[in-house]
Write a protein that binds this DNA or RNA. Structure first.
Lengths: 335, 335
DNA sequence: ATGAAAGCGCTAACAC
DNA sequence: GTGTTAGCGCTTTCAT
């Protein structure tokens, strides 16, 4: 009996029976193999007495199943991914799986490295929010079930579940237009990411559909950061004919806009209106509370896990884009 | 060559050499065992060609080391724990370990269950933020190195690294007093948790040290939730002689206070001052920005990992309480 | 109703 | 320089 507890073999020796029998009892197969009452009890007692825990590493090797799912995300300290992780963990726990957590820090290099580290660990499947620039390295993963979450690659055949970003951005833009805004600026994030592209597309579809004059539709920015939001908002608000509304493509950008407004002495929504992608708990605490497009995080988590299990069971799956919801607060004024 | 890639034995068969030699080369021991240049190259080539990844489950079983650390926390969607997880993951990755993530949802029941699930997985060590009510079940974990983070048990001999809560609360209270406040209310969280007890002690030490009249020192609340903050703040602000300053013992409580103030039309810091434990990014965006006691999350993560490695190496460790820092903003007025 | 033996993929002690 | 062999702890086929 080593540091990790007693083994099946040791129990067998103690009782002078075979390890096969012990294994059968402890695996709950006593009935199936018609093990005698007496033997069964004896085994159970001894196991309890020594607090037996099956060595899962041995099981994993033998059964070629680890009951482990890799969760590869850019950054667990981003509330969006943290919430996703929580949902996924809950769902997976119910199905007897545990999560191996890996941050990629938004680096494709780290993502590649992580991928090879984690395949060695024989995970049963992978939930990945890819960094997004380039997805060639995922092609090496044939054989491991993968579901992409939040971001994905159109050209890869790996299934995904994500927010319907185009639709969300369209909703937000249409909302501004319906409130009477005709001069709208959109501050975007990283341009080559699919979420940014889709959001921009939704924005442009709405402005086109309602025939906003082209020179009154601004698109600027290049990064999902507070700095970019701050910088871009300053440019916008300091120009001679500033937009009456700003659409921030994520919560970090919105924070930047808020800080810029504060610095310039601009009051929301009197001086300009603001709407943001990414619901965050603090958006109801700012003044004014910010109207947002809320991503369906819980649903994404639940659906992604469901999909992964189908994949593991060799069933067919279909990509899912879940439409987000507009949460109306006080940062948009009708004009 | 199954779904998970080629094995050492298969490479050996292919090259008609022994698996020992292959293992040695691939483990980087070619030099040590004076394997011939030619053999080494051959092995390397074949391994690359078939994209060999050592089966870590087999390694783990053989070496009785999983290079896996369990991280057991109440809730990954709480930014405090998410940030802690991020730091820990980073540190552990540098040392070749991965994290198995488990949420306990603040339930001692789930915590117990998790503990036995995870011991079967033969983790090399455990980083635990215990739920806190009761710690008897940790005594069963003899043999597995454990470091408690954030919360701990005085009566258990398991080492911990945490915020110096008493000191932080003392700093906050003293700050209020130095600003001229003599009528101060403290809204506390779960009373049996050690963090709450320590924070309350710090508060009481300061008020005693500066001889605040007893009837002007209020302590109320019973929970680390927004609701409790809201409810308690309402009680305080509606009484005929309300306190001039409120000390919220965590960020959730502070949010509740903010919401209550809004509902009652009270303006901070004109109507009352507010200081809160737990720095959060959105506290600089509220109006006014909130003065907080910022917990040393990064340090806790780094130190906890360091400590865990010492434990694994059978070295002595010493408990650590790291003092938090006061971040001054505009929610406290001098009177 | 129970057991012997093989094997999951890897490493290491001990040969030669 | 390389190979043989045993074994980590478990499950399972095949016997009896």
């Amino acid at each position: 009996m080593n540091a990790h507890g007693i083994t099946i073999k040791e129990i067998a020796n103690l009782l002078e029976i075979s390890s096969t029998t012990v294994s059968r009892v402890l695996a709950g197969h006593a009935r199936k193999y018609r093990i005698s009452q007496k033997t069964e009890e004896l085994v159970r007692e001894t196991a309890n007495k020594y607090n037996f825990q099956p060595n899962q590493v041995a099981q994993q090797l033998r059964l070629k199943r680890t009951n482990t799912i890799g969760l590869i995300i850019p950054d667990i300290s981003n509330p969006f991914f943290a919430n996703l992780a929580r949902m996924a963990e809950q769902e997976l726990r119910n199905k007897g799986k545990m999560i191996l957590l890996c941050n990629t820090n938004d680096s494709t290099e780290l993502e590649k490295e992580t991928l090879s580290l984690i395949t060695g660990r024989q995970v049963d499947g992978l939930l990945i929010a890819p960094v997004g620039q380039q997805g060639e390295h995922f092609k090496m993963m044939k054989g491991t079930p993968i579901v992409f979450i939040d971001r994905y690659f159109r050209e890869l055949s790996i299934p995904y579940v994500s927010t319907h970003n185009e639709n969300g951005a369209y909703q937000a833009s249409k909302y501004l237009i319906k409130k009477g805004h005709t001069h709208i600026a959109c501050i975007q994030g990283l341009m080559h990411t699919i979420s940014n592209q889709d959001r921009v597309n939704g924005f442009l579809r709405a402005t086109a559909e309602f025939h906003l004059p082209e020179e009154q539709v601004n698109l600027l920015g290049d990064n999902f950061s507070i700095e970019n939001g701050y910088k871009s908002a300053k440019i916008l608000l300091e120009q001679e004919d500033p937009p009456t509304a700003i659409f921030a493509l994520n919560n970090q950008i919105a924070i930047g806009v808020l800080l810029a407004a504060k610095d310039l002495g601009k009051v929301i929504p009197d001086d300009f209106s603001l709407i943001s992608f990414d619901e965050q708990p603090y958006f109801q605490l700012t003044s004014p509370p910010i109207t947002t497009i809320s991503q369906p995080i819980a649903q994404i988590g639940i659906e992604a896990v469901k999909m992964l299990f189908k994949l593991i069971d060799n069933e067919k799956v279909e990509n899912q884009l879940i439409s987000p919801e507009l949460i109306e607060r006080q940062s948009v004024k009708a004009i």
